[in-house]
Design a protein around this nucleic acid. Structure first.
Lengths: 248, 248
DNA sequence: AAGTGGTCTAGACCACAAA
DNA sequence: TTGTGGTCTAGACCACTTG
């Protein structure tokens, strides 16, 4: 086998010792040489094999454990874990950067801004239990002359009072918030839907054309901060997610 | 000194020392007390603060760096990083589990199976440079009586020869592969599109109805293993991604 | 009871990037 | 040059779990 017969030697990379140990073991697991359930050599055995201290071996094994490739049990040893979990790191770029990466000029336009007492729907979207002031924003992001994404956002003014003073005419709410409110947790929902008339009109596409919808709720230290819905015309946007189970 | 001068006893949680250091610093960053660009105390300072060895401090700071919360520069120190990267952990469930979680009976049906020499398009999808045998599969996943997702898959037989002997009549290729081939890397592309006639027919929806498309390429130890495209009717599927910036 | 991993120490040398 | 982080050592004690 092996189309690529990797370069532990050729590639010239000078790995640190614990990285090399990690890499060796990962290779054994990923190649299938060590099947799920297989017991990995004890730390003291690897210590002898690599002629190094136990801390060095431990560093490698701990990382493998945190990455989920192996499971460690006191008194028993370390074992190759069962099938990989289907998790991936999803990168959600800033829209400006995304547009500029396409080589197109970026433009932002605020469509609407309303400060109001939160409706039941607002509270549901934000995950708020008590009523309070919210700011509702609607904006368009352009790539060149074409609408690239429609943004509908709610900001919880109880959490970010200063947002109530901002007009958001020159800066999009996303970057504004990022610079001010450190977020501790976020939840995304991604789905497809057909454009309704209002969306089709805003995005300059045909009614019932397919759109990609990305919704994000963000918390900072347990407090709901914002809920945002980005609506992309289908042809303008692809989300890309990459994942490597463990990294050295 | 002492941010938390504590109690290995009182607090209930008995964190290891490096976990407590990590947690303290993360709290400072997420609360905004230490803004982006702020210089974190040097290792030797933390060593004094927590009355511990440098390795212990280093372990905490290394983890924060790997989590992307801080950046470390030799000779300069460690600094709180700029705005959080918009990364999220995307969970892609097994379709069977997903369907059963809805309380609906799951059924799998293989539509087509072709073994062939890879076409240029096959190689492009799989990321193969050299020609070789591939297995092309088309399947339907049902939730109750309704089609839930259409699956179009290519398997690189150079990497997974035994797949060539499998009919995939009773087991879906996803679970089959998971049990056999550990994956080291995966890439997802997520987009919306309108159903063409073939898709609409298979999924029993109207032509040009919006669909969510999830494509996944998987590698194992540098070798392309499979490319799969799941097509969901818009109303049947939402991807959910959650994220917390760093974990102890 | 014994052997594993979890954690920690008090040093050390080195590479690297500022000053 | 200097001081930082990156890495490593050769011990140590402890907690846990299994035989």
């Amino acid at each position: 086998m092996s189309l690529v017969e990797t370069d532990d030697i050729e590639g010239g990379e000078s790995l640190s010792l614990h990285q090399r140990i990690l890499s060796d073991i990962r290779e054994k697991i990923l190649s299938g040489a060590w099947a799920p359930g297989h017991r990995i050599p004890f730390e003291h055995e690897l210590t002898a094999q690599y002629n190094c201290s136990r801390m060095t071996v431990n560093k490698a094994l701990s990382q493998l454990a945190k990455a989920g490739l192996i499971e460690r049990r006191r008194r028993s040893g370390s074992f190759v874990r069962q099938p990989q979990s289907q998790a991936a790191v999803l990168e959600l770029h800033d829209i400006r950067i995304e547009v500029e990466a396409l080589g197109l000029p970026y433009r932002y336009e605020r469509l609407g801004r309303v400060k109001r007492r939160s409706s039941a729907e607002d509270r549901a979207l934000l995950g708020l239990s008590a009523p309070g002031q919210v700011l509702a924003l609607e904006s368009l992001h352009f790539a060149g002359e074409r609408p690239f994404a429609l943004e509908k956002r709610l900001i919880n003014l109880s959490a970010v009072a200063e947002a109530g003073e901002e007009e958001f005419l020159d800066i999009a709410p996303g970057p504004w918030l990022i610079g001010r409110v450190p977020w501790s947790e976020a939840e995304h929902r991604i789905r497809a839907m057909a454009a309704d008339d209002a969306i089709a009109d805003a995005l300059d596409i045909e009614a019932s054309a397919p759109c990609l919808v990305v919704e994000r709720r963000t918390w900072s230290a347990e407090h709901p901060v914002t809920h945002v819905r980005f609506i992309y015309p289908a042809e303008s946007h692809t989300l890309v997610a990459r994942f490597t189970p463990s990294q050295g």
